[in-house]
Design a protein around this nucleic acid. Structure first.
Length: 752
DNA sequence: CTGATAGCGGTTTTT
DNA sequence: CCGCTATCAG
């Protein structure tokens, strides 16, 4: 095994201890992914384990695909007896459930549908409506979150009912109805995928035995972010053998909101007595400066096992701090610095990432990139499979395969519009509720009874025929042809064509891309089932293109990645750490771990930035620098020139040092951290400071339109910009109505 | 039934 | 500021 030579002793030990439980405590940038891939290769090459007896679990589907590719790169093709199984917990569970879910014998079958967070929310809402629960006193999102939390902690609705807490009791009532509805629709949410699998393995020893034999060696990446159902699943999968290797870093546990339990990794040795523990504390990724900065921040967490990462890498450049007066100035600065960095560099070296706490922040940076003509890739946010047109078309297929899928039914019954409006839908809903039927069954009854007027009857039976036709084609047509059939015969294609706008045009293109994806899936030997499951479980298909010069994403999405140049932006109290975590010290520590993750993504150069003002809900607020900035070692940070920095210097010169003396100027916190106010609830921005009056650096950005602008379109003539959202623009043309366009694509002449 | 408009309420993070 | 819902005119 010549590749072992490239590993340090600790890594080698993690790779070659192949039997029994192994805990790998791997710090950031310590070669964790390498250890896992090499370990798999070692099992196959040295221990004679068949690849298809190995199960490796990663955190995202993308990571799974990459790992599989890496391993296959290490193992010569003739050694690959059987296919290696790498996937997320969720994808794995879907595979199991598609095989065995009918064993429970209830209303659930192997043809179950998966409801994503959106659809789950709709079910919750409809339950609340039928229970007459006011959605103002109890926001559906909160209830939804409560149900998910309860499920993941192993509670049934009955467990929560006995309480004087009104909110808890309400959650329990909705929870109960929710479960009934889901069962009736043969639908599982993301939590159910894990929970049902656990129940299956627990309840049916033969199934548990089957999987214990099937997978003799199990590896789990990002173990610090496993939640209770995942923990239980791992236990069950390894109950006969203990060939389990988990890899993770307690300092990078950032998914508590999803019920991840950091105790899983901290107590691993208790759960698996005799476990071998390997600590990887040498960092190969970052400069000494970056690493020391990150260490200095994470040290402030109290609930933590002391651990310091070391590196023999070069010291490198100082961390650069930039303070902007306005958020546009911040994004402008970032883009300019990216361009400067990339000058004369080629791709792997030139790669840069902008990391932010919330998805909402991405827009500023997208706009800045467009202003400066810089190519970028946006990860996360609204993904391909979340677009309305994609979800609609897939909903037709879901409905055809599971006629009781009420969510799919509601989604497509009148999209495109076919004369089935609110009154008719209410009638269907009423019937379904009273007779305990699904929407589809209610539809059948009403058509049979002919109790509606002719016009409506025609619309309803037309829809019924459409879905039946699709269902009839499911076994016979190829995947791509089936999709084309749906797009055409549902009227979707015609609807978009008739719209005659660029917006509709781009939707049509998306549908074409979906067909292409179907062709590719078919080539991989996947069926319709796999295709739809994939659509539900894959968050971002536009994955991270390796050749992207600049990537924009949340810190959560950046977990496991690395970039030569990294910007951690929006470092303000209330934003990062987020205001929702302000009053809870455990949550604050999680925010700090998040900060640690962000900082340790950088290999060569790290920037941290914040803005003194930020727009929230359309209003501007003053902000304070993040406390995490003050936790950076002052001697490792240098501040970039900015109007804010200049103003501060001037102020210090005229008014001699203010009493405190706490602010070492060029140090981390540019301004001392002020009190505990939440940034977003500070006083409104009244009269601007002297320096603020000048227009922001964004200034006259060419080619962008504002609401209220008058423009001329070559076809529709003069019009008024009524709305702008993301990259789309809506323009009212007298006589033509409101048309939507992709802003960067439409040709407009500006009038005044 | 459909399309347009006004008003209200809401931002953490993801499989 | 933006998206969703309720409401109203055609």
């Amino acid at each position: 095994m010549d590749f072992l030579q490239t590993l340090n002793p600790a890594q080698q030990e993690a790779v070659t201890t192949t039997t029994g439980p192994v805990l790998v405590l791997a710090g950031a940038g310590s070669g964790k992914t390498r250890v896992i891939t090499y370990r798999i290769a070692y099992l196959v090459e040295e221990c004679g384990v068949r690849p298809d007896n190995i199960l490796a679990v990663t955190f995202t589907n993308k990571a799974a695909a990459e790992m599989k590719e890496r391993v296959n790169h290490l193992i010569p093709p003739d050694r690959r007896r059987g296919e290696l199984f790498v996937s997320t917990f969720h994808s794995f569970c879907v595979r199991v459930l598609r095989r065995h879910l009918d064993r429970f014998g209830g209303s659930y079958t192997r043809d179950f549908t998966i409801y994503d967070t959106d659809e789950q929310g709709k079910v919750v809402k409809s339950c609340m409506k039928d229970l007459h629960i006011d959605d103002k006193t109890f926001p559906p999102r909160t209830i939804q979150f409560g149900i998910s939390g309860a499920k993941n902690r192993g509670f049934a609705p009955e467990d929560l009912l006995q309480t004087s807490d009104v909110k808890r009791a309400t959650t329990a009532r909705v929870f109960k109805l929710y479960e009934e509805r889901m069962a009736a629709a043969n639908a599982l949410d993301f939590d159910d995928l894990l929970l049902k699998t656990v129940r299956l393995l627990k309840g049916f020893p033969d199934i548990a035995d089957y999987y214990n034999n099937r997978f003799t060696h199990i590896l789990i990446d990002e173990y610090q972010d496993t939640n209770p159902p995942q923990f239980n699943l791992i236990r069950l999968l390894t109950q006969n053998h203990k060939n389990l290797c988990v890899v993770g870093d307690p300092d990078q546990s950032i998914y508590k909101f999803r019920a991840a339990d950091i105790q899983n990794i901290l107590d691993f040795e208790k759960h698996y007595p005799g476990a071998k523990t390997v600590v990887l504390d040498e960092n190969y990724r970052s400069t000494k400066t970056i690493l020391d900065s990150a260490n200095s921040v994470i040290k402030n967490n109290k609930q933590r096992r002391e651990k310091d990462l070391v590196t023999s890498n070069a010291r490198g450049e100082k961390v650069r701090l930039f303070v902007a007066e306005a958020a546009e100035e911040e994004s402008d600065f970032v883009v300019r610095e990216v361009k400067r960095w990339q000058m004369g560099k080629t791709l792997p070296e030139a790669q840069a990432a902008v990391l932010y706490r919330t998805n909402a922040q991405s827009r500023l940076f997208e706009e800045a990139c467009r202003r400066h003509n810089l190519q970028y890739v946006l990860v996360g946010g609204f993904s391909f499979y979340q677009r309305a047109e994609i979800k609609d078309v897939i909903a037709y297929l879901k409905l055809a395969m599971n006629l009781n899928d009420d969510m799919a039914f509601e989604r497509v019954v009148n999209t495109p519009p076919r004369g089935i409006g609110k009154t008719t839908l209410d009638l269907l809903a009423e019937r379904a509720k009273n007779a305990g039927l699904s929407r589809w069954e209610a539809l059948g009854q009403i058509i049979e009874e002919k109790t509606v007027n002719q016009r409506t009857w025609n619309a309803l039976s037309g829809f019924e025929g459409l879905v039946k036709a699709i269902a009839g084609n499911v076994g016979t047509l190829s995947l791509a042809l089936l999709l084309k059939h749906v797009i055409k015969h549902s009227g979707y294609e015609k609807m978009l064509r008739d719209e005659n706008t660029e917006e509709a045009e781009s939707r049509l293109l998306n549908l074409e891309e979906l067909v292409t994806a179907a062709v590719e899936a078919e080539e991989r030997g996947e069926g319709l089932r796999d295709f739809i499951d994939h659509a539900a479980l894959v968050a971002d298909t536009d994955a991270l293109k390796q050749d992207a010069p600049l990537t924009l994403m949340t810190i959560h999405s950046a977990k496991g990645l690395e970039f030569p140049l990294v910007f951690v932006v929006g470092m303000e109290e209330g934003l990062f750490p987020h205001s929702r975590s302000a009053d809870d010290s455990a949550e604050l520590e999680e925010e700090r771990r998040l900060c640690y993750v962000a900082l340790t993504r950088a290999k060569k150069q790290l920037y941290v930035t914040h803005s003194e003002r930020r727009r929230v809900y359309g209003d501007e607020f003053a902000t304070n620098p993040s406390r995490f900035l003050a936790e950076l070692p002052a001697e490792l940070v240098e501040e970039c020139d900015s109007r804010a920095a200049l103003r501060r210097r001037m102020a210090e010169r005229t008014a001699p040092q203010s009493g405190g003396g706490a602010s070492q100027n060029s140090g981390g916190g540019s301004r001392p951290f002020v009190g505990k106010r939440e940034a977003f609830q500070q006083q409104r921005f009244g009269r601007p400071q002297p320096y603020v009056e000048r227009a922001s650096a964004a200034g006259d950005s060419g080619g962008m339109y504002k609401t209220g602008d008058k423009v001329r379109h070559e076809k529709y003539g003069a019009g008024l910009v009524v709305r702008r959202q993301d990259d789309k623009i809506e323009i009212a043309f007298p006589g033509y109505g409101i048309k939507k366009f992709i802003e960067s694509a439409v040709k407009l002449e500006k009038l005044r």
